[in-house]
């Protein structure tokens, strides 16, 4: 069971090893990295290439750990009680299974994606320690312990909005997706746009890396922006020479809006600096 990337996803060697270690030792794998470097995509691709079912749990600021386990829908039960429904007598009818429960119950080992865990409340990761460690939890309403049939492959992504607690980190393996180098970028673009003209590919990546180098940018464009941009270049029939002769100083690349999403960054690219003296 080796994950070596898929036709549409280039996994670097270090990422492959991290995934392999996490799968073999049955530990959650925490993935961090710049936005747009394919953190979430990784779980999808692992599931696809290993032929596993993907269970995706997207975390929001209001998500609680309990929601991943189960929720007891007391309101429905109250309503049903007033309507004299037969369902009322069995509390099981009002237990809504969460993603974790779903993963624990799965027939075959699933891939469980806990996406953007840092969006949730600070205590959220701590509330999941026991569940991820022992792969079981206790359901009070049913007076039952729910344990995983097999340990799911757990992929957790974080954008670093909040720091994760040490106790949680200790239980995970960690991989930081570094921004790809020029070679890897070429491979990535090539799997998405096979048959792309080599000169265009090289010039586009060269220019893209040059844009990324600009120090003043607030949000540096990443892989996903590059892919969007190349799509536009192709749609607009941009010729490789147009990119080659371009001077970044005082001249914007075509479709620059796909690379830089805010005005200040576009200005910074155009005029070389967002310099605003703080004397004024």
């Amino acid at each position: 069971m080796k994950f070596t990337g898929t036709p549409s996803y280039i996994a670097t060697r270090d990422l492959q090893i991290a995934v392999e270690a996490a799968i073999t030792l049955e530990k959650p794998l925490l993935i961090k990295g710049e936005p747009g470097t394919g953190k979430t995509l990784l779980a999808y691709e692992i599931a696809r290439s290993l032929g596993k079912k993907l269970i995706s749990w997207n975390i929001k600021s209001t998500t609680s750990a309990q929601q991943g386990l189960y929720e007891y829908d007391a309101i429905s039960r109250l309503r049903d009680a007033q309507l004299n429904s037969d369902k009322v007598s069995n509390i099981r009818n009002y237990i809504r299974k969460g993603k974790l429960w779903e993963a624990f119950e799965a027939e075959a080992v699933p891939v469980l994606l806990i996406d953007e865990i840092d969006k949730a409340d600070l205590e959220f990761p701590n509330d999941l320690l026991q569940e991820l460690d022992r792969m079981e939890f206790y359901c009070y309403e049913l007076d039952e312990t729910i344990s995983a049939r097999q340990r799911p492959i757990v992929i957790i992504t974080s954008n670093n909005e909040k720091e994760l607690p040490d106790a949680f980190l200790r239980r995970c393996f960690f991989h930081y997706i570094r921004f790809p180098d020029a070679d890897t970028l070429q491979q990535i673009v090539a799997v998405h746009y096979p048959g792309l003209q080599q000169a265009l590919l090289q010039n586009a990546i060269h220019l893209f890396l040059e844009v990324r180098e600009k120090r003043q940018l607030k949000k540096r464009p990443s892989t996903s922006e590059l892919l969007d941009w190349i799509k536009l270049l192709l749609a607009g029939g941009t010729r490789p020479e147009e990119l080659e002769s371009l001077q970044l100083q005082g001249e914007l690349p075509p479709y620059a809006g796909a690379l830089l999403k805010n005005e200040q960054d576009l200005n910074a690219l155009l005029y070389g600096s967002t310099h605003r003296s703080y004397y004024s």
């Binding site: 270090d14 090893i17 270690a21 996490a22 961090k32 200790r170 960690f174």
Partner: peptide, 19 residues
């Protein structure tokens, strides 16, 4: 040896500042 290094890295490092 590269793989060994990658393995150690994913096991021993818990946040990117420590890389």
């Amino acid at each position: 040896t590269d793989d060994f290094y990658y393995l150690c890295r994913s096991l021993f490092v818990k946040q990117e500042q420590a890389l």
